[in-house]
């Protein structure tokens, strides 16, 4: 069996990357195996659990449902880049305050999705936050503390804007 390979150029966490990738390799395998960015996790590889969530061209996607080759010319942000940028440092601190992670396997994906929610800068009720986060599974926390952390961060940001 011969495989097709493709040459791609993309930006990952702000840096230009060129690579020759198997056509069938999905984005998270590429990030993890080729770039050693192991913060994005694979929890199901069929687009349900959200552990692999990454940002591609400003939108959070399931990294397991996107082929690396599709990201030719794209701008990809992973948990490593998101952390480096300090975009959600307040949320990350609140995750610690509220004990919003236990094993931590879902946490990078959870933060990617929550970052998108916070960036919308809407006022959301708790059940709306729950709805927004429904694509990210957690088996440890029961979600309570995660929703707390997001809600507290959202309120704090709005408070800061008002003052």
């Amino acid at each position: 069996m011969a495989y097709d390979f493709l040459d791609i150029k993309l930006i990952v966490n702000g840096e230009q990357v060129s690579a020759r990738v198997p056509a069938r390799m999905h984005l998270v395998d590429f990030l993890r195996m080729e770039l050693e960015l192991t913060g994005s996790h694979l929890g199901c590889e069929h687009g349900i659990c959200g552990a692999c969530s990454v940002r591609v061209d400003g939108v959070v996607v399931r990294g397991c449902l996107v082929l690396a080759a599709q990201c030719d010319g794209s701008d990809v942000l992973t948990i490593e880049g998101l952390s480096e940028s300090k975009e959600v440092v307040d949320l990350q601190n609140t995750f610690v305050e509220r004990n919003a992670m236990q094993c931590g396997f879902c946490t990078p994906g959870m933060l990617m999705t929550a970052a998108e929610l916070l960036a919308k800068n809407d006022k959301m009720a708790r059940n709306e936050i729950r709805e927004f986060m429904s694509g990210n599974f957690c088996r440890c926390t029961g979600y309570h503390a995660i929703i707390d952390a997001i809600e507290i961060t959202m309120e704090a940001r709005r408070e800061e804007e008002r003052s």
Binding site: R32, L37, T38, G39, S40, H41, L42, T78, I79, E80, S83, Q92, F95, V96, M101, G104, F105, T107, P108, L111
Partner: peptide, 10 residues
């Protein structure tokens, strides 16, 4: 865990 630096078996 928060910044993707934990090392799981994979």
């Amino acid at each position: 865990l928060l910044v993707g630096e934990a090392r799981y078996v994979d």
